[in-house]
Design a protein around this nucleic acid. Structure first.
Lengths: 308, 308
DNA sequence: CCAACTCTTTGTCCTGGTCAAATACTAAGC
DNA sequence: GCTTAGTATTTGACCAGGACAAAGAGTTGG
């Protein structure tokens, strides 16, 4: 279904270690170390001796990462068969409204019916309201589309197209809601190398909906710059989004750095599937483990900061 | 201001190689290689022999990074004194003379008055109409903001903020115009490594305005995927945007590749400041040398394809 | 002025080693 | 049984120094 990206001889689909690092969130060092220790993954080599990972290897790596997020250790699971791995994953139940068939939406993406897709999304949004739309429709859709993409069932351009349409829909909704008003002032952004935009947009939609004042800084801002921005905008909260492919240690280290750079009365909220693996709480950082929790955390903040 | 993260002995402020990588965008490999080749940066070592970079080293690295983005090469600038480096940054020539109105807009960015900025932009849009807004306001503003950023007069987060606000304004305008209707069907995208979004959005605004059917694929689509997408969407035109930072030869090679992959009755339009340096026309590729020209090219297409 | 060629520069990848921190395991004490 | 302290193992991040392809600069000839 999907085409071959480059000048691949036959079955293609082979990618460099840098690509695997970006797509799985496993560092090059870790990938090489695993190969040394566990004999997996053992990628092919190109004419220059450089690693070429196959699609199935990347897929397995993703699965392993997911299991590690659930607390498993690499040494144990590395030896398991593909079937065993699949059994171990505790499927995250999609919190979707059964009233809407997400598969139908996915089908529109695959058949490239953009205007229909756009209209379909607008319709669901109207029917469910923004909050439900974000939580019950967009979030599980992202999951489905992401899965399909990593299985190679979706082409890059199809995934991008989906992302663009969701962006258009959410941004239109946010734009309509916009009125600079209530506390808290929330700065939305992500760390360098975190390019995923939809997570931030979803949160922005939810928070704007609740009347918070959102300042969207866009993605990939270096930490010292975030600190600067927090001062410049007199932010009450910094909200950060981490995708599943973000390196956990980098995220945690970054959060610590950010915390130590900010005044204590600026809150830090971190969310996204990149936070799944973080078990030990970082002092002064609130981890939001689901989109619903965003609303709880906002409520808590308002209670704590209610004018006396 | 920032507190000392870890077991720093006295004056602290020393950071690990991972932190430097994150905050400067220079990879660990590159940092170590520079140390080997140019004897800079030469960080301290902790008890375990691991690098500890000082604040001033990180600052200098940032400066070097900026100069490299302007086309300087590391080998040359690495030997310069701090003063020389600063001179080089400020020497960046202005590419256009800024009119007064635009200065006011820039001032809003610098003083972080987002709601005022947003309102200001909306106002100009209403006053000028979308076409003039894009051509006379957004395009020169991009230029000015880009220049200011190059000179280090604008922080990263300020530049991102500007970009977000323009995006919001343009996307809202496009969204309001949307009606899937007329020919040609135009696919908007960019090659891999071309991340600049505003150029594409501006073109999308102009084309949508004129009643063309735009399919925004987003940035950074591999060439074979563009071909696939063209087929899937039965595109009449592929429109591509290249920023000034994009490698000219890569762009030209890519355009040739794309041309040879597409049926001859699909047009290719290429624009953006990355095309300025391209002299020789590529057969079957129309280069648009200004935003105004986008409209001409569209008109030409329609004339050529008028139904008999 | 441009095209083809060579030489130099530069960043990414490689191997294989080391070690601190995190985690699991075990034994002792309440 | 349940916590606590101490020990063993696992794990990922870092290190040095080598190799090479791709990008860029310089050169020559049409």
């Amino acid at each position: 279904m999907a085409s071959i990206p480059k000048n691949a001889p036959d079955k293609g689909y082979e990618v460099s270690i840098a690509t695997v690092e970006r797509d799985t969130g496993l560092s090059k060092d870790t990938l090489r170390m695993w190969e040394r220790r566990y004999q997996f993954p053992r990628p092919q080599r190109d004419s220059n001796g450089e690693r070429l990972y196959s699609r199935s290897q990347v897929e397995r790596l993703r699965l392993i990462k997911r299991l590690m997020n659930q607390g498993h250790r690499p040494g144990k699971i590395m030896a398991c068969s593909a079937d065993e791995l699949h059994e171990m994953v505790t499927e995250t139940p999609l919190t979707s409204d059964s009233s809407h068939d997400l598969g139908a939406t996915l089908r529109l993406v695959r058949t490239h019916q953009i205007s229909e897709l756009r209209q379909h999304l607008a319709q669901i949004l109207m029917k469910q309201g923004l909050q439900h739309f974000v939580i019950r429709t967009v979030a599980p859709l992202n999951q489905i589309v992401g899965d399909a993409w990593m299985r190679g069932e979706l082409a890059v351009f199809e995934e991008h197209l989906y992302s663009e349409q969701i962006q258009a829909t959410l941004r239109a909704a946010i734009s309509n809601l916009y009125q600079p008003s209530d506390a808290p002032r929330i700065l939305l952004t992500s760390f360098p190398n975190e390019e995923h935009r939809l997570g931030l947009l979803m949160v922005e939609a939810l928070l704007t909906m609740e009347g918070a004042t959102c300042v969207a800084l866009g993605n990939e801002i270096p930490i010292p710059e975030i600190v600067q921005a927090a001062l410049a905008h007199r932010a009450d909260v910094i909200a950060l989004s981490f995708s599943g492919a973000f390196q956990t240690n980098v995220a945690v280290a970054g959060l610590k750095d950010l915390r130590s750079g900010l005044s204590q009365d600026v809150a830090i909220w971190a969310g996204g599937s990149g936070m799944d693996r973080v078990r030990k709480p970082t002092p002064g950082v609130i981890v939001m483990r689901s989109l619903e929790q965003v609303l709880d955390v906002l409520r808590d903040w308002r209670v704590a900061h209610a004018a006396p």
